[in-house]
Structures are given as C-alpha cells and as structure tokens.
C-alpha cells in the first residue's frame, strides 16, 4: 500500500480516532500525539492491513487500547490529567464564563464518568455507531453496552437537571 493510498483509507475515520482519544485523555495535545502515534503504527502494518476486514474498527480498537494504557501508566506515575482545555480553538479569555456555558458543562460531566461509559457514550451519541459495532470495538456484550450507555445518559441528564435548577434558582 502506498502512502497516498493509506491516507485515503484512514481519512474517513482519523477524526473519530482523535475524538475518542480526546474523550479519554482530555487534553487536545495528548489526543493529537496519541492519534499520530496510532496512525504511525497502522502505517507500519500497512502490508497486512488488506487482511483486516474492517480497518476502521481495528483502528478504533487500537485507539481505545492505546489511550487506556496511557491512562494506566499515568496513574502509575501519579501524574494527573490536566483538565484545562475543554474549550479549544478559541483560547479562553474568561474561563469563568465558559464554565457557566452549558455545553462545556456537558463536557465536564462526561469527563467525570467512568472510562467505559465515556467510551460507549462517545461511540454512540457522538459517532453514532450501532451496538454491534461498539460491541466489536470495545470487546463487550451488547447488553453490557446498553446498560453502560443507559447509566451514562441518565447521569448526564441528572447532573444537567441539577445544574439547570440551580441556574434558575
């Protein structure tokens, strides 16, 4: 496989990989580095890539494993994730106002979910994968995915309702 051909193959899902990485690692730079590294790994395997039926699923699984490993080693070395860039692109001048912004609230709430729920929510509600695909990616049973997803959605809803009520009162 040539480089241009490879890029054509990964182009449709490299953003999805990046978004999943960012969901797990929180920081934009780290997610970029992770995505870059995974794509490199994928490129180094490009000779066998034709054998994989679904390169996208394979790449997403790699992303998940890579990020979880990174989180694990980070916890081991006692480094805390920097939760500083919920809002990217436009560098925030008034971070206090941003915290009040309801969309960044959602991001914050999701960031507090357990990893598995984060991933399920990301893959379903942001990327709109089918349950079977998610089951394949995360190596989970579809019923377990349903449970995790339902929990995640309810938690986000509850916290938003709380916030909403405070906002009014």
């Amino acid at each position: 496989m040539q480089q241009t051909e490879f890029l054509d193959v990964v182009l449709p899902f490299k953003d999805k990989m990046f978004r999943l990485a960012k969901r797990l690692l929180t920081s934009r730079e780290e997610a970029e580095d992770a995505t870059q590294e995974i794509l490199m790994k994928l490129w180094s395997k490009n000779k066998v890539m034709g054998n994989y039926k679904n390169v996208e699923a394979y790449a997403m699984t790699m992303t998940k494993n890579f990020c979880l490993d990174r989180l694990k080693s980070k916890q081991a070395s006692n480094l805390k994730l920097v939760h500083s860039n919920y809002q990217d692109e436009n560098v925030s001048l008034q971070s206090e106002i941003e915290v009040n912004d309801s969309l960044s609230w959602v991001e914050k709430i999701i960031a507090e979910l357990p990893e598995q729920q984060k991933m399920v929510l990301q893959l379903r509600d942001v990327e709109q994968y089918e349950f079977e695909e998610i089951a394949d990616l995360l190596d989970m049973k579809p019923t377990a995915i349903r449970v995790a997803l339902s929990r995640a959605r309810k938690t986000v809803r509850e916290k938003l309702v709380q916030k909403h009520n405070y906002g009014i009162g």
């Binding site: 990989m17 978004r19 969309l103 938003l160």
Partner: peptide
C-alpha cells in the same frame, strides 16, 4: 430544556477535527 445542552453538545463534539499534519 435541561436536555438541550446534551444533544447540542453531541452535535458540536462531532465537528472536532484532527488537524495535525500527519507524518509517516
């Protein structure tokens, strides 16, 4: 109304792009 930010956020989150130049 409490649901709105949730769904709006999902749509917004999907617009995020990997912009870094790929180096192979």
């Amino acid at each position: 109304r409490a649901y709105a930010p949730m769904f709006q956020y999902f749509s917004k989150a999907k617009e995020e792009r990997f912009t870094k130049q790929l180096e192979l």
